[in-house]
């Protein structure tokens, strides 16, 4: 589909007279999104900040507690291992998911028919509810009845205990999370890759660039902003997402996979210590927001430059 636009006219010498009509879209365009987000996103966070200064179990009214929850955070023995585990999970997830999603996305953006069929199949994990994903992976990894047991029977070796081994559990969790989220990021990369104009590739080919060279010098630079967007989503997601881990390992064995968001959930929704949970939540929000703003600034995402300026 081509955009029907007249040939760009030469700029009139007198531009001042048309200045009024060239005003960019005003803040009003932000209002619907802004109001919805303010009521259900920002206002709740403000209430959470307030709750972090109270002691409340969800019943009755919150009691003012000052900085007690924050001081308690500093002494909570679960926090330092939680921070370590969360960091490790974030880095590993990014390292595993980004190359996979990038390559798959670019590959499935190609015009061949079989690629379209396969990318439909790759899409399937996105359709499944969390309960299904967690249960099926638990069943697959069950050391007594799952894949390790079947392999053990075939090779006459003891069954690998994947989710139950404190050293290995986190890596298994990274793998399952990758299975769950790569389709999502692949979708983003696929959409972006399809938008890369063919002319760039044709020009590169004329210059004698092979497939790998084309990928490195055409595809990757064109996808720069998509990588940033996807990475921000991945990093912040690792700081806030825990449902899969909750259902897969419950944070165990011991606390080997107890990431901070899971600890927050357990403190607030199983232990009903809303004040302490709010403090952890606020901490996560601040760190996550800070990280996303930092990534966005550092990569120039916020400058809104186009990679295709001047074409």
């Amino acid at each position: 589909m081509t955009v029907r636009v007249g040939a760009p006219p030469a700029r009139p010498a007198v531009a001042a007279g048309t200045a009024a009509r060239q005003r960019p879209p005003g803040v009003g365009w932000l209002v619907p999104a802004g109001v919805l987000f303010a009521v259900f996103g920002l206002l709740p966070i403000a209430i959470v900040a307030y709750l972090s200064l109270t002691s409340w179990n969800g019943l009755g009214s919150p009691h003012w507690a000052g900085l007690a929850n924050w001081r308690g955070l500093a002494h909570d023995p679960e926090i330092p291992p939680g921070i370590r585990t969360t960091l490790l999970l974030t880095v590993l997830s990014w390292a595993v998911q980004t190359p996979l999603a990038l390559l798959l996305g670019v590959w499935s953006a190609g015009p061949q028919r079989n690629r379209a069929v396969l990318s439909a199949l790759f899409f399937l994990p996105l359709l499944l509810s969390l309960a299904a994903i967690a249960l099926s992976w638990q069943a697959l990894l069950d050391p007594n009845f799952g894949l390790p047991a079947s392999l053990a029977r075939l090779t006459h070796t003891p069954a690998a205990n994947l989710l139950g081994d404190a050293d290995r559990a986190l890596y298994v969790v990274v793998a399952v999370l990758a299975w769950q989220w790569v389709p999502f990021h692949t979708l983003i990369y696929q959409g972006a890759a399809r938008q890369i104009p063919q002319t760039l590739y044709e020009a590169a080919e004329l210059d004698g660039a092979g497939r790998v060279r084309q990928f490195v010098s055409v595809t990757l630079p064109q996808l720069r902003h998509t990588v940033v967007a996807s990475s921000v989503l991945m990093v912040v997601g690792s700081l806030t997402y825990f449902e899969t881990i909750l259902l897969l390992t419950g944070g165990g064995p011991g606390d080997a996979t107890e990431v901070l968001p899971l600890h927050m959930y357990r403190t607030g929704f199983v232990g009903f210590d809303m004040g302490a949970a709010s403090a952890i939540a606020l901490l996560l929000v601040v760190v996550g927001a800070g990280l996303s703003v930092a990534i966005v600034r550092a990569t120039g995402f916020a400058r809104m430059d186009s990679e295709r300026e001047g074409m």
Binding site: L135, Q138, A139, L141, D142, P143, N144, F145, A159, N161, L162, L163, G164, D165, A166, T249, G252, P253, G254
Partner: peptide, 22 residues
């Protein structure tokens, strides 16, 4: 045993271990 940290009560994994004689 050694596998117990990953055996789940909800899917009755332990009950199955007893029933099958493992």
């Amino acid at each position: 045993g050694s596998n117990y940290p990953s055996v789940n009560a909800d899917n009755k994994g332990a009950s199955m271990l007893l029933a099958t004689g493992k």
